[in-house]
Design a protein around this nucleic acid. Sequence first.
DNA 1: ACAATAGTGTCTATTAGACATTATCGA
DNA 2: TCGATAATGTCTAATAGACACTATTGT
Lengths: 246, 246
Amino acid sequence: MTAAAPDLSFPRPLCSVDVAIFAAVDDRLQLLLVKRAETPGEPFPGQWALPGGFVDIDRDRDLEATARRKLAEKTGVRSPYLEQLGSWGDSRRDPRGWSATHAYFALIPAEGVTLSPGANAVDVGWFAVTGDGVKPKLAFDHGRIVAAAVQRLRGKVEYTSLPVHLLPAEFTLGELQRVYEIVLGRCLDKSAFRTRVLAADVIAPTGQWRGGANRPAQLYRAKDRDIVYFPRPFEPRKARASKTAR
Amino acid sequence: MTAAAPDLSFPRPLCSVDVAIFAAVDDRLQLLLVKRAETPGEPFPGQWALPGGFVDIDRDRDLEATARRKLAEKTGVRSPYLEQLGSWGDSRRDPRGWSATHAYFALIPAEGVTLSPGANAVDVGWFAVTGDGVKPKLAFDHGRIVAAAVQRLRGKVEYTSLPVHLLPAEFTLGELQRVYEIVLGRCLDKSAFRTRVLAADVIAPTGQWRGGANRPAQLYRAKDRDIVYFPRPFEPRKARASKTAR
DNA sequence: ACAATAGTGTCTATTAGACATTATCGA
DNA sequence: TCGATAATGTCTAATAGACACTATTGT
């Protein structure tokens, strides 16, 4: 005889995944957004939103797979830095009913990425991050999700090696410092920066050099794909009394 | 005329919330677990698990509400420190089908908490955290969720004021230091600890004193309910060469 | 007086930022 | 030689930990 299986027919929330994809494009921190189709009945038609969609329980083995699928659809990138950001679920964020979304955030190198809208979207584009968000008003509650993503990114950049994932495989220390400055929105001291990063043992010289109209720079490569934590955050000191007062 | 609403009838994952509830009980960091009922058809009958359950879209206005409901059911505590931990979703974690759970972690003062199994559970209890987890093998993938919760807690304790939430409203600096040591599993220097905590401006003296068989201690109260970040983590130095060599 | 814990003071190694200096390339 | 950027060195303020010392209660 078969035991009576408990009832699972109660209503379930909708279950989706959204991804906040960041890159350093044109010397600015930018976020990838997609424009929603104008299909009748679709919520927020024509509005910009994070790339995302419902979990497909036949195709996606887990939540991260859904996130990777969305990322690959829009950017073609297959091995980004991908981190879970959090989840947002309530009765009102989606007019179609109680819904919960699992948000991820990704960092990708801007170089060599070609955007494509994919299905469900009519347009894709990079949007400069200003303050805690982005210019256009976003669909759903994506505004607050983006704010959380930006805060998490900025916060972690203060004390981790995260920004290496915004660069291609090989890069110079100068370029690395530049991405840090782009994300943080402030300048860093070169000497202190180099000491920190090299002491953290996150990057290794490739032995190659990048030449230009100046002294060539050592090329480096990220050591681990993982994130490394600095012992302390960047802490700008008060400006010292300048000797050359002017 | 009505626009054709898009089809929402595709299968949805199950959606649940689980809560890792920590307290400092008997001078040890402990985790609250519930024993699952032996109801036929229920997965993992009789096994220990995190308190949790399906989102009830009629009762719960959002995910956090589900977490609070579970917490109150088991402990009666209504205003804990509650933080989202992450989400886990895949096709195999629940034998009943593709399921995603939203995990939270909570810190509560051990004092004055009375446990009750509530519905769906036949027993509740505190389990000492050892290493990254807890003795019994847990239901579902709760083992890895607990590991993530413990790591997050330990990590944050290094550089935040989190442990105040493991204490009752009023406490002495000695007691606060003790909870830090319980969670971190190592001793801290009294002087350094006091300087740090007081400089962080997270607690305020109440004006009251706690007496005993020794010099009375100033009572403090947490200033904000929120978490405060220390400028740097606790960093134990190498032991200095002892003058009294023996 | 003594045990026990609270609370303070001093010393020092370490560090990271500020800033100056040197190095190395192309034009 | 010059401009530009890379790489390194020096100085110093700040700090956190180690550890000793003092303070205040009950017994």
